[in-house]
Computed example of a mutant assay.
Amino acid sequence: TGKTLLAKAVAREAEANFIAIKSSDLLSKWYGESEQQIARLFARARQVAPTILFIDEIDSLVPARGRGMGEPQVTERVVNTILAEMDGLEEMQSVILIGATNRPALVDPALLRPGRFDELVYVPVPGKDGRRRILAIHTSKMPIAKDVDLDDIAKRAERYSGADLEDLVRRAGLYALREHGGLVETVSMKHFERALKDSRASVTPEMEEEYSKMEAALKQNALRVEPIGFVAPGMLTPERDSKHGD
């Protein structure tokens, strides 16, 4: 849905340096190497501050601890390193961290507490006006016929993401190429009609409903998370209450 593009736009509007990295680039099979790479990444971001530091697919880097995902020891060390970099002894110093994920429920709740990822932004698929503008961008250099109605296409392409719309325009162009033997004067509405039939939205109504429920639950879970440590509800017995009754 354009999460990476949105992060780039934030950096451009803020006139800040932009560092983008995938979670897989930070994970290593060698003991302690993942933590060192994370520390080096944050040190580099501080050196060139102001910086927007963008980590894509962050759920694979900082999954919730204690759920048996991945190697528990490695996961806990990586999560603790990220937490220490975000609000440890060394301040962020004009470094803004943005993480993107399609599975926010898998992210460790400790990262969603105030002072870390303060804002949770749900990036939905574009609305009708947004789809119309995206179609206009992708068809700006395409010789489209006068009968092509971008407003009608945008209306019918419900739940299409930016990538889906780009694929739709590409398909229409390919159908026109095949019809005219490689010499295309214009791409007409019939080519877009065929492209609409042969393409589909990558986001389903069920997915949208799931994300809307998840959006409300995430903040509540973050506020209920236990402080960093090894004490969980039920582990401690209130001996004082049982002995003294106060």
Rank of each mutant, 00 (worst) to 15 (best):
R12N: 10
E76F: 04
D167W: 06
L26G: 04
I144C: 12
M235S: 10
L218T: 06
A11V: 07
K219H: 03
A39W: 05
R132H: 15
G127V: 09
T4S: 15
I19D: 03
I134P: 01
L165Q: 02
A157N: 02
Q73T: 09
L6V: 01
V231Y: 13
M142C: 08
K213A: 15
R240Q: 12
A84V: 05
I98D: 03
A84M: 07
S23Q: 12
T51R: 09
G127M: 07
A217V: 10
P109N: 14
D149N: 13
A84K: 04
E57H: 14
L218K: 04
W30M: 08
A217K: 12
V121L: 15
G182C: 10
R40F: 07
S161E: 01
M207S: 13
A43G: 03
S140D: 15
T237S: 07
D241F: 02
R12H: 09
H244K: 14
D87G: 06
P238T: 01
A7T: 08
K8L: 05
S34N: 09
D164H: 10
G115F: 05
M214E: 10
R159I: 01
P238Y: 02
S161N: 04
A201F: 10
Y211V: 13
S140K: 15
L6Y: 00
L26V: 08
E226S: 15
P114C: 12
A195P: 06
F117D: 05
A43F: 02
N221P: 00
T4F: 14
I55R: 00
V169Q: 08
E179C: 12
L5N: 07
K213R: 15
E76G: 02
F42T: 00
D167K: 10
A100P: 08
V95E: 02
A39L: 14
V203F: 11
R178N: 08
I144E: 06
L53W: 02
L5K: 07
A157Q: 01
V231C: 08
E71L: 08
R46F: 06
V121A: 14
I19S: 04
D149W: 06
D108F: 03
M189T: 04
P126A: 03
E15L: 14
V231E: 14
Q47D: 09
G173A: 13
P233E: 11
A16V: 07
T51N: 06
F230S: 09
G115W: 03
E239F: 12
L53A: 00
R133W: 02
V95A: 03
K155V: 00
N17D: 02
A49G: 09
P109Y: 13
V169P: 06
M69W: 05
R171V: 11
P109I: 10
N102P: 07
T4P: 09
S94Y: 05
E166C: 03
V107F: 00
P238M: 03
A201M: 11
E33P: 06
R170T: 13
L5S: 15
R40I: 10
T81M: 11
E35C: 12
K155T: 01
R131T: 05
R12D: 06
T51G: 09
D149I: 04
A49T: 05
